Simulated assay, not measured.
Amino acid sequence: MTWFALSLAAAFLMATNGAYMKKFFSDVSPWEMAIIPFFYSVPMCTAGIIFSGIPKLGPGFYPALSWVLPMMIVSVILHFRAIHMSPLSLTLPFLSFTPVFALITGDFFLGEKLSGAGISGMALVVIGGYVLNLDSTRFGFWGPIKAIYREPGSAIMLAVAAMYGFTSVGGKVMIIHSSALFTGFLIFVLLGILIPIILIGVGKASLGTILRKPLLGFGSGFIVFTEIICHNIAISMVAAAYMITIKRMAGIFSVIYGWILFHERGIRYRLIGTAIMTVGASIIAIYG
């Protein structure tokens, strides 16, 4: 179950970076917060390419890169745009639907077939992830669904979840035609260069702010660098939908960080969601 351990590690690192950014970069804009991990991971990912080497690239590598990269850039920008426009409790729940889209795209692009038990486990993780992110007092269970029709951020985040479903599978296509580490490192080098150029160019971010805390910035970059390694090796070993489903358990680690570091309250829905996700992940690990 190496893939499961690596996927869970990627989930932990994803949540760790979120808590790290909130702890040390809460004074910057959401746009600059989006840039910093990508920007500071560039030197490490570049070194990773140098030391791991450039593998022989198959015929499907560049066609996949040609649409995965722009879609990832758009999805990252829209992700933070949605959070900026609407409450977190009306946007974050929709990220839990990424595995559903990965299930569809994985079948279409890669011909990945999942077991009935595995799909059942995925459904539980998706439901648990949705419940995990609900606000316990303001909007209720159906609040985010209803908000699609009145909150632009909710509709945007659902579109982002669909894009992540495509990019995760597209990334695996690139891995098949190269290697797991090369694909991950290359994509993040390009993201770390292009996203800052775009957001600084349109006036959404300041280079001075991004460079203000270099040591802390490299700390975030290192977390992302380690996450890239775990993510790409894991997704190369198993169906993309399974891997993305386990990685969505980052929400559980985020809840723990929120409780320990930031003394967050209102954990009723979070405890319920955590229990549901844990059962779903166990089913995938054992029967998927």
Score class of each variant (00 low, 15 high):
residue 76 V to F: 14
residue 132 L to V: 02
residue 103 L to A: 11
residue 145 I to W: 13
residue 237 M to A: 09
residue 70 P to Q: 10
residue 171 G to R: 06
residue 60 G to L: 11
residue 16 T to Y: 04
residue 185 F to C: 00
residue 19 A to F: 07
residue 205 A to V: 05
residue 42 V to T: 10
residue 121 G to E: 09
residue 255 V to E: 02
residue 217 G to H: 01
residue 284 I to V: 15
residue 162 A to D: 04
residue 6 L to M: 13
residue 9 A to S: 14
residue 120 S to T: 15
residue 90 L to F: 00
residue 287 Y to G: 06
residue 15 A to D: 06
residue 168 S to K: 07
residue 151 E to I: 04
residue 212 R to F: 02
residue 192 G to R: 03
residue 45 C to H: 06
residue 83 I to A: 07
residue 97 F to G: 03
residue 284 I to N: 06
residue 244 I to V: 14
residue 214 P to N: 10
residue 32 E to A: 03
residue 272 I to A: 15
residue 259 W to C: 07
residue 259 W to F: 12
residue 225 F to R: 01
residue 87 P to Y: 00
residue 182 F to N: 04
residue 244 I to R: 01
residue 141 F to W: 09
residue 9 A to Y: 02
residue 2 T to N: 13
residue 175 I to S: 00
residue 100 V to G: 00
residue 262 F to M: 06
residue 152 P to S: 12
residue 100 V to L: 15
residue 114 L to C: 01
residue 117 A to D: 14
residue 201 G to R: 07
residue 136 S to E: 15
residue 159 A to D: 09
residue 61 F to L: 06
residue 285 A to I: 12
residue 143 G to F: 04
residue 110 L to M: 08
residue 205 A to T: 06
residue 176 I to C: 03
residue 123 A to C: 13
residue 75 S to W: 05
residue 167 T to M: 11
residue 205 A to D: 10
residue 15 A to Q: 06
residue 219 G to T: 05
residue 4 F to A: 13
residue 256 I to A: 13
residue 23 K to Q: 05
residue 31 W to V: 05
residue 31 W to P: 06
residue 279 V to A: 15
residue 190 L to N: 08
residue 201 G to C: 11
residue 16 T to V: 09
residue 214 P to M: 04
residue 174 M to Y: 01
residue 260 I to H: 10
residue 107 D to F: 15
residue 247 K to H: 03
residue 26 S to V: 03
residue 231 H to L: 12
residue 20 Y to S: 09
residue 247 K to V: 12
residue 40 Y to D: 01
residue 87 P to A: 03
residue 83 I to M: 14
residue 17 N to Y: 10
residue 137 T to A: 13
residue 2 T to M: 14
residue 285 A to L: 12
residue 249 M to V: 11
residue 208 G to S: 13
residue 65 L to Y: 11
residue 196 P to Q: 10
residue 40 Y to I: 10
residue 49 I to C: 08
residue 195 I to Y: 00
residue 183 T to S: 13
residue 102 A to M: 04
residue 75 S to T: 10
residue 180 A to Y: 00
residue 19 A to V: 08
residue 182 F to D: 04
residue 220 S to K: 07
residue 83 I to Y: 05
residue 140 G to K: 03
residue 225 F to W: 08
residue 167 T to G: 05
residue 192 G to D: 09
residue 260 I to G: 02
residue 20 Y to A: 07
